[in-house]
């Protein structure tokens, strides 16, 4: 197998630069780090939540229509958790491929005091947090999950998805769910009622929340509102907006004791769904280890080295081959 060394080196260099030019383009490829200016989101205040699950019910109703995140072609009814021809049963306990939004609870001790970590309980509304730098978007090999450049919603294109479920593994909040029961399954997750926003409406969970525990709005406004609430004194009366952060409908009620923490303001680099509660968030199912790191950076640190590795391996390999094969020839000549 005598091939011309020059030819070989040429091939190697051409091949390397081909990979470089087409493959990794670090500058435009890294994930966003800032919110789109029109980013919308949800503020959930666990101290206002009464556990009526109205958000869960209406989420399912309004996402089962065409364009919704739970829609399946040909389906006439919402995807209930359990269904036989005779009976329907739908009391989801956790997120599933049929439930995008769930109210869960943390109980401790006697469970008497609302929003207290000792002998108390707290509700928590679990659904997609719409991270500023979403891990699911960054890990999806086919860009089936995308972040809307205008409103920042993390949405899903079912026609691209191959079903590798890396998004499920990567999500620090255990959000994406998979339709294991189907032969041609999809990933299901909250898409912040993107189809309703397009029609000028807003998220169903916020529209139907009776207490204003979930309110919809621009992320910037929601942050201001959340900060305002943290500065209130417990017991003081406050007009809590209902449905939307800038809505005219208010509900006056005394302020509960807040934990001084807006979950989602900084976690995982920031999210568009933010939460307030009276109970530490690690008790409410959010892992302590999720800090302010932009998680996609962790893999980007590896990917950004790939071009250098390609060039390095090819050059070193070719060089080594050149030297060792010359030695061989020299040996022979001797």
């Amino acid at each position: 197998m005598d091939i011309n060394r020059r030819d070989f080196l040429k091939t190697a260099v051409v091949g390397g630069s081909l990979v470089l030019s087409s493959g990794a383009r670090p500058a435009d490829a890294s994930m966003p780090r800032e919110l789109p200016p029109e980013a919308v989101g949800i503020l959930y205040d666990a101290t206002l939540c009464i556990g009526c699950k109205s958000c869960m019910y209406n989420c399912k109703q309004f996402n089962s229509v065409e364009g919704g995140a739970l829609y399946s072609k040909g389906a006439t009814d919402p995807p209930y958790e359990f269904r036989t021809p005779q009976e329907i049963w739908d009391a989801p306990k956790a997120l599933s491929s049929k439930t995008l939004n769930v109210i869960r609870v943390h109980r401790s001790g006697t469970g008497e005091n609302k929003d207290s970590a000792e002998n108390g309980y707290s509700f928590i509304k679990q659904h997609c947090l719409h991270c500023i730098a979403p891990t699911c978007v960054s890990v999806c090999p086919v860009a089936a999950l995308k972040k809307d450049p205008d409103n920042g919603i993390v949405y899903y294109e079912e026609d691209r998805c191959i079903g590798c479920r890396y998004c499920m593994l990567a999500c620090p909040f255990r959000v994406p769910q998979y339709e294991y029961e189907k032969a041609f399954p999809q990933v299901r997750k909250c898409q912040l009622c993107r189809h309703r926003i397009k029609e000028g409406s807003f998220s169903a969970c916020c529209e139907f929340c009776p207490t204003g525990a979930s309110i919809f709005g621009k992320v910037a406004d929601l942050k201001v509102e959340a900060q305002k609430r943290l500065e209130l004194k417990p017991g003081q009366e406050y007009d809590y907006p209902v449905q939307k952060v800038d809505s005219g409908e208010k509900m006056r009620r005394p302020v509960s004791k807040y934990l001084n923490h807006i979950y989602g303001a900084k976690e995982a680099g920031g999210t568009q769904y933010m939460m307030l509660a009276g109970v530490p968030f690690d008790l409410l199912g959010f892992h302590k280890n999720v800090d302010e790191t932009f998680l996609p950076d962790l893999t980007w640190a590896y990917i950004s080295k790939i071009p250098a590795v390609i060039v390095g391996v090819l050059l070193v390999g070719a060089g080594t081959w050149a030297i060792t094969s010359r030695n061989k020839k020299a040996d022979k000549e001797e």
Binding site: K93, A94, R104, V105, G111, E112, K114, R253
Partner: peptide, 19 residues
């Protein structure tokens, strides 16, 4: 006409613990 503050979780069986 002020909104009530629920005493406790009802029905308890239909609320799952977070963890």
């Amino acid at each position: 006409h002020s909104p009530a503050r629920p005493k406790y979780i009802t029905p308890p069986a239909l609320f799952d613990e977070v963890l």
